[in-house]
Design a binder for these strands. Sequence first.
DNA 1: TCAAAGTAAGGAAAGGTTTCCACATTCTTA
DNA 2: TAAGAATGTGGAAACCTTTCCTTACTTTGA
Lengths: 326, 326
Amino acid sequence: MANIKDVAKKAGVGIATVSRVINNSGYVKSETRLKIEKVIKEINYMPNEIARSMTLQKNNIVAFVLPNSTHLFFGELLYYVEEELFEYGYKVMICNSSEQLEKELVYLDMLKNNRVDALILLTNNDIEKYLDKNLRVISFDRRFEGVPYVASDNYQGGVMAAKKLLELGCKNFMFIGDDAQGDSTPVITEVTKRRIGFREYLHSVGIDNVVNIEYPLGNYMVSTEEVHDMLTGHMDVDGIFTISDAVAWAVIKELEKNGKRVPEDVKVIGFDGGRSFINLGKRITSIGQNPQLIAKAIGESISSFYNKSTVEDKIIPIYFSEGETA
Amino acid sequence: MANIKDVAKKAGVGIATVSRVINNSGYVKSETRLKIEKVIKEINYMPNEIARSMTLQKNNIVAFVLPNSTHLFFGELLYYVEEELFEYGYKVMICNSSEQLEKELVYLDMLKNNRVDALILLTNNDIEKYLDKNLRVISFDRRFEGVPYVASDNYQGGVMAAKKLLELGCKNFMFIGDDAQGDSTPVITEVTKRRIGFREYLHSVGIDNVVNIEYPLGNYMVSTEEVHDMLTGHMDVDGIFTISDAVAWAVIKELEKNGKRVPEDVKVIGFDGGRSFINLGKRITSIGQNPQLIAKAIGESISSFYNKSTVEDKIIPIYFSEGETA
DNA sequence: TCAAAGTAAGGAAAGGTTTCCACATTCTTA
DNA sequence: TAAGAATGTGGAAACCTTTCCTTACTTTGA
């Protein structure tokens, strides 16, 4: 492939001048510019980005490390992040950790060696000590010391769900969601705030007997058996708020199997926005996260790494998504 | 960050020797090796991959260009491709074309400039003329001159669906699927072969009055109205084969709305494997594609670029996925 | 009209590797 | 024991840019 030297030789100019034309910087006589541009077209010269990265010490690559891109919400987020960063001229490298700490760490090393410009980190692991201070990191839904983060307003989401269920006349409440297993882990999951918002609001109106179902962090799906166990002994609840739409759907199926009508007998509110379930019969009532806004915030944070030294945290509003299950 | 020169100086050896240790190549006295390894650990040296790419003229990056990673099957394929290529030491760059030819072309240029090692191409556009002969490309489900491809055995999938529906006693058949709009486009879509296999098998047993519904290539979802139109005037069909599970699901909903029972009155077979619909009530009977096998084939093709000059095409077997809709 | 400012262009260093080549040392074996 | 092979090591070129620095020419303005 043709390189900048070929262009310079053929145009009868110096390398530096060609570089100036390409980057549109410094002084170049318009006559010279035209001549060079003609040659570039003629021999179909395209600047070698690797060499450019070499000198500039940056490569316009952003890596997105996440547990699993096939998870509905993560997949959507990935899509919008890619779309957003494309506008900024970044390329996105995808790194599924597949929930394996080791793979995540291998990726972290790889990315450091590849001098990626930034890292979007979405993890359930406590990898604080592996985070190189030279690496620009944005985290989503998890807080690490010194790392700016973007998250939905999960607390408000919990409050919103509680309010809605109260409004609809529910009396016996249940929350189903994964958890950071109390305080044993130093990772503060944003996701836990859904639970906190939900329970605190109910507490504020004098309701404290909320059934609380926990299951291990990072399980994005639940099996039929698990749902069965969750509901056993709690057939009196009439208002359920779940950590995700996927879980909500499983719960609804199980309720119906037990002769309960949704929403007549039990109201169910999910989380994420119910988008993926639109074509599947009942539309799930849900607290919506907005992946597009989140992606936008992430994009802004990443690009602002270059202007300011500190990047602020961002909380993205959630919204109520009307459905047929509450 | 420390570089190879720092290591060499601190260890009192030459740069070349350090390089030999890192790459485990050539002759190095084990004494020297130990000394160098100690220094590497001490100053936490990690080779700069950009510089390495510069000299080696390859960067271990594979780009996956596809219309939309949020499409269920594509998303799964992406996941397994990433998993597979990780084993080979490749990183995956994700490029959603969002069905825009222009974005696809911008990406193609970008990738060429970045000297990616290979490209996995999944497109509905006829971009043959933009494909640089120097770029290693594997295509999935589309055939381009001189480009090796990987595809499911779509023809056999069509045959399999036809056989099954016949076996179940269906008399009036319908095929719903997108199409390359006849021969007007030079792109040969593998997807069309599902239709061909289905119809040819039925033809071979004397059935030719198959209702054929086409809609534009690249529409991975159908709206309620579209499905309504598709079925209007065809309420006598009792065996339907659709291009995807997503479409199958929409069709089932519409049939049920019209008082038809599935599978009692009408049998419906989808395509992709019915995985995503497992938790959503009825399990869809489906012709399954195996994204894991496909990813494996793609990985092998990419790595074999380095051994042989020609890479052969690969057809991946499909399988019948039992469900409750046929 | 001459100095200063503005415009134009090229040489060369720097960025961090790998690898070819040359040289030096040690081991084999006839 | 000397020639040849095997082992060990380092210098320097090459990969392709960007950019600093220098030089040179042109314009401006007092």
